[in-house]
């Protein structure tokens, strides 16, 4: 409380603590990450493979995704964005690339960073692979992967995969 300028001010922070559960159907994804594995889920109805299997259900079919499928680790950039704008709390040197990556065997892309190449060289169809953090830093998180980097393989011709994305 301060009254320096004749106004009374109150600071009343709000905080609530929760117990969060990943749910049985998404747990294999998080448990896989603890072991350096990329585990997605296949829909029993439309056969789409989701990585990550958000909520453990197929949003198209409203079915539980029961079957674990290992995907990647390599993938293909489906679209990307070169970030040039500084913002509070930024940890990465500008410019950097945030890309949608379709992991091999998955039907939806996921977002990650592209490093170890010039931003201007990043392109749709570029083949990339994950660079993992030191194992001692791993947890149930996609942050176990520091970033993705180009593999040097020939580009994937986009549109040739049957993605659900």
């Amino acid at each position: 409380m301060s009254e320096a300028d004749g106004l009374m001010r109150l600071r009343l922070p709000i905080a609530v603590t929760y117990n969060w559960s990943a749910g049985p159907n998404a747990t294999s994804h998080l448990a896989g990450l603890m072991e350096g594995k990329l585990i997605g889920k296949r829909c029993p109805s439309c056969s789409s493979v989701y990585f990550p299997a958000r909520n453990g259900v197929c949003p198209k079919c409203a079915r539980i995704l029961a079957e674990d499928v290992t995907v990647g680790p390599k993938g293909t950039i489906t679209t990307f964005c070169i970030v040039n704008v500084p913002f509070l709390g930024q940890k990465i040197k500008l410019p950097y690339v945030a890309a949608q990556i379709l992991l091999d065997g998955a039907d939806i892309s996921m977002q990650h960073l592209i490093q170890e190449c010039e931003a201007e060289d990043v392109r749709i169809g570029m083949r990339v692979e994950p660079v993992w953090k030191d194992r001692s830093e791993w947890g149930p998180s996609m942050e176990n992967i520091e970033h993705f980097r180009p593999t040097g393989e020939p580009d994937q011709v986009m549109g040739s995969e049957s993605g659900a994305s």
């Binding site: 117990n19 559960s21 990943a22 749910g23 049985p24 159907n25 998404a26 909520n55 453990g56 259900v57 409203a62 539980i64």
Partner: peptide, 26 residues
């Protein structure tokens, strides 16, 4: 109490159940 299911997992079977009971599809 202290369900380990997500909200989506809580809902999905119930929605399927009510559709089945009434005999209609999504």
């Amino acid at each position: 109490i202290n369900s380990t299911f997500t909200s989506v997992e809580l809902l999905l079977p119930i929605i399927q159940e009510v559709l089945t009971k009434v005999g209609i599809e999504r």
